[in-house]
Amino acid sequence: MTNSQTIQLDPTGAAARFTRPLRLSAAEDLRGYIGSHLGRAFLFMTTFLSVVAVLLIFAFVVYEALPFFFKGSWADAFARVKEFLTANNWYPQREHDPYYGALAIITGSLYVTVCSLLLAVPIGVLAAVFLSDIAPFQLRQICKPLIEILAAIPSVAYGVFAVMVVAPWMQRRLGFNTGANALNASLILAVMALPTIISVAEDALSAIGRKTREASYALGATRAETIVKVVIPAAHSGIVAAVILGMMRAIGETMVVWMASGNASRIPSPWWDLSQSIRTMTATIAGELGEVPKGSDHYYVLFAIGILLLAFTFTLNLFSEYFMAKVKRQARGG
């Protein structure tokens, strides 16, 4: 019915007032061409800001760390690097002849990271399996926000929880000398790494698709067999990426380890004794940078620890990108 109505153009409407020629003049065309390229360049420059930021971060951290190593001859610098990486005594506040051996600090970081991952990876992968293969849609809709909230809670709040709730409990119930120890920090770090691991692993598992699963079911495999023997091996690169991202989260975490690990710069002995205090790279920077005068050796060495942290995370990031690219290729190919 509406079709049969004749469309009357309003003689005073917008269409009537549109007097510009439909073809652009040469100048206008040129202006538009230049304008669009300038705009593109502007957009590119803005996007390039991230690259600049990364470069600046690397440059400034390295720049501030260099004076610690390069003060005299090359041999001297080498000796300092060697002391920094292999010696075990961290006494930067000593007045004469301070020691800057960061080995215990580096191992401390790795120690809590590995411990937390030992906890978080099995739980995280199982939870990802649950979300991708087992949980019904409704339940998944409830679980996802739960994981998001777990990820959103600020690290300092987890730190407060570790200090005010977990530490007294450990002293009372487990009979530890101190509530601020490697176990406390690892537990909390595991909770913090879980959401990352779950969401990345779940994406990887979902990317495998129905076909693979159905093929397995058709061969008579149970759900457990399908997941363990087919889906997880197929999604292994995504799961590895999940573990790496979880590791990045744990190694870069500051507030929790600063508050909950006890900050004792020594390697636990025996090595499996989680009830001892340890100290991490991040906590060392956070705890000491506020108190050192700018331009002292101690100030520079903290930036050297920053370089180590950057190197760790950058390498891990490259690995995770490699595995994520594999996942993407898989998803496109499958």
């Binding site: 991230s50 990364v54 870069g252």
Partner: peptide, 25 residues
């Protein structure tokens, strides 16, 4: 690709290193 890698790196830089950079820059 470089830009994307940098954005991912930026996301992965530990927060305390941002603190270092903030202080130094």
């Amino acid at each position: 690709k470089v830009i994307r890698t940098c954005i991912n790196t930026l996301a992965g830089v530990p927060s305390i290193v941002y603190g270092l950079f903030g202080l130094a820059f």
